[in-house]
Design a protein around this nucleic acid. Structure first.
Lengths: 231, 231
DNA sequence: TAGAGCTGTGACAATCTTGTGACAATGAAA
DNA sequence: TTTCATTGTCACAAGATTGTCACAGCTCTA
């Protein structure tokens, strides 16, 4: 997941880029309109974080101009960075197509959270989902979010249960650490071991014929979980 | 893969070194600016873990000063250890060229993960665990913490049993003293002969076909244990 | 051969990890 | 606005792991 950060404030841009990379995003920087458009065209980012105030001609080379230009050709998610209390800017930005805005000053964590929210709303396309996945009498349809069990029953899964099951089935026979699973399900920087435990329990209650003696999802104490270890 | 750990907190440095060695890194220590620069020049480490607060003149002999000095001559990956999640400190560190930072207090596992992340970004890979270890009909998978015996059975090991078996198998044919084993398994200052005895017993009960007449783990009275001594 | 010291053992205590049931919070849909 | 589904959070139970203890049996030395 690649993010283009457009800001002429070097220190701030560095901090944002560092934070984004730290939680797993690719991040690239542009510091004016020209290089922003060039980066957008060549690096094909998945989201743009765009400062409103940029060097160059106001109205022609500021953040709004870039946003407008990109919107004429693309639906890419755009988050505007603007100065506190400038509500007129906010309205203008949303009108020309920005998806969200963040007020300066802000903390990088706040920005990361906002990026996640925008990406969720945009429903970003991940790798092509397989139509169905079948293993050991368990048939899972990610699109419909339902599983058919060995005994013929069908269970519907929630969104998070689906994500977890897909991650586990795609990596069956391997041990996935708690951190790996948490990152894969909730995204960089999200989730917690407690949340994962609960999700595993909920998923087990739907797919295991005997949840007290799980057949599919195995725990390795202190390490993580595995789906159908070879045994 | 050699890591230079720069920290005047001896206990912490020992713990970090122990942890790094446990997962396959070489680790060396310096406890002030002078020896840090000397170690860097002479031992040519591949990465530096650098505490921000060091004894000596602030601004001239602290972690930032060392980082700045090294950056003027090298791109070596540098991870700063700091107690303050203060953005100012973080920005300062990044500005002078640090690649990442870890907040104290931290768990050794967290630091190792951060080191791997920085090395990945730097394009170098840290040491990986051997997939499997096989000796005389005993097959051990450290990742899954399981052994397959000569008679086909599979046994799961606990975390400490795994560590002990790996140490023993990596040094097979050699005698390891009680102190060596205790230090390797529990780390500096931890463990005891009593605990080691119990652990050896538990491990033997899982891997020996005849625990009363052990084939793999031999005791040398008053000295230590060995794995598969040639007799 | 006897005794001291060492190693192995079974069992229990302490601690940690995982699983569980239930409730709170949130957001979407009716 | 209300209701419901989903997800997050909490407190505690259950199970696993590790530490500790006391003693039996073995080995080595005088």
């Amino acid at each position: 997941m690649k993010v283009l950060v457009v800001d002429d404030d070097r220190v701030l841009a560095d901090l944002v880029v560092f934070t984004l990379r730290r939680v797993g995003f690719e991040a690239i920087v542009a510091d004016d309109a020209t290089s922003a458009l060039l980066r957008w065209a060549e690096d094909k980012p998945d989201l743009i974080v765009l400062d409103v105030n940029l060097p160059g001609k106001p109205g022609l080379q500021d953040g709004f101009a870039i946003c407008k230009r990109i919107r004429s050709e693309s639906d890419i998610p755009i988050i505007l960075l603007t100065v506190r209390d400038d509500e007129e800017d906010i309205v203008t930005g949303l009108e020309i197509g920005a998806d969200d805005y963040v007020l300066k000053p802000f903390s990088p964590r706040q920005l990361v959270a906002r990026i996640h929210a925008v990406l969720r709303r945009a429903g970003t396309a991940g790798p092509t989902q397989p139509a169905k996945m079948s293993v050991e009498g368990l048939e899972f349809n990610p699109k419909l979010r339902e599983v058919h069990l060995k005994n013929g029953t069908m269970r519907s899964l929630t969104a998070l249960e689906s994500v977890l099951l897909e991650v586990l089935m795609l990596n069956r026979g391997q041990v996935l650490t708690f951190d790996d699973l948490i990152s894969d399900v909730w995204g960089p920087g999200g989730g917690s071991p407690e949340m994962l435990r609960q999700l595993v329990r909920r998923l087990r209650s739907k797919i295991e014929l005997d949840p007290g003696n799980p057949y599919y999802i195995h725990n390795l104490q202190g390490i993580g979980y595995a789906f159908l270890l070879n045994r």
